[in-house]
Simulated assay, not measured.
Amino acid sequence: MAITHFADLLAEARRQPEPQRLLFVFTRAELPDDPTEEQRRRFEQGEGGVLTPVLCVDKAPEELSDMSSLVEESQRTGIEWDIVFVGALSGSGRQAPTSDEAEHHLQRMVESLQMGNTQRFLALDRQGEAVALQ
């Protein structure tokens, strides 16, 4: 199944035979250190920049209803973000992974994103639409 929206992600996670824990790393678009004039111009036009992780959370699919609820919850932190990257962690048997187990995976996800490795994760905008990054 091609996941093109947050609702697709939830449906697919709920269909899995093993219990899932969804990992979310929220990122904010920023100018890189010492940007060139071209980088600055593109960034001001809403293109380019670097995505910096600013917030992480893990959730069981049952804890989520829709993207607007996730956005609302994130707004209560006061941290602004532009793109959220999503990964999944499978449980074993009937046991879903715990938040403690997810912590290590979230940290590895953040490190991977900081190195620019975004292809392994689903990227969603604030409306829950899948985003293709270049």
Rank of each mutant, 00 (worst) to 15 (best):
R15E: 06
V25L: 10
E38H: 08
L51E: 04
L10T: 10
I83C: 01
G46A: 10
Q75I: 03
R94H: 11
E18S: 11
V86E: 01
Q16W: 03
S68R: 15
P53D: 03
R41G: 00
E12N: 12
E101K: 11
H105V: 08
E30C: 15
E12C: 07
S112P: 07
Q95S: 13
V110R: 09
V86S: 03
E101P: 07
T52K: 14
L124A: 10
R15C: 00
G87N: 07
T77E: 12
L23S: 01
L64C: 05
A13S: 15
N117G: 13
L23Y: 02
R42K: 13
M1V: 06
V57D: 12
F43W: 08
I3N: 00
S99W: 00
P19A: 08
V25N: 01
A130C: 09
L10Q: 10
Q95A: 15
L122W: 03
E44Q: 14
S74M: 07
A60C: 00
L89Q: 14
L10D: 09
V54D: 08
F121M: 05
L23N: 04
R40Q: 11
G128A: 07
E44G: 14
A102K: 02
M109C: 09
Q95C: 11
L51V: 06
A96P: 01
N117R: 14
M109Y: 06
L9M: 05
E111I: 04
H104S: 15
A13W: 00
E129F: 13
R108P: 05
Q134D: 05
E47S: 13
L124K: 02
D34A: 12
V110A: 12
T98Y: 09
E73F: 15
L51Y: 04
M67C: 13
V131N: 01
E12H: 10
Q107G: 03
Q20H: 05
M115H: 15
M67V: 10
V57P: 00
I3H: 06
R15A: 14
P19S: 07
E62I: 10
E38K: 09
P17S: 14
V50S: 01
A29Q: 12
A102N: 02
A29W: 05
T52Y: 02
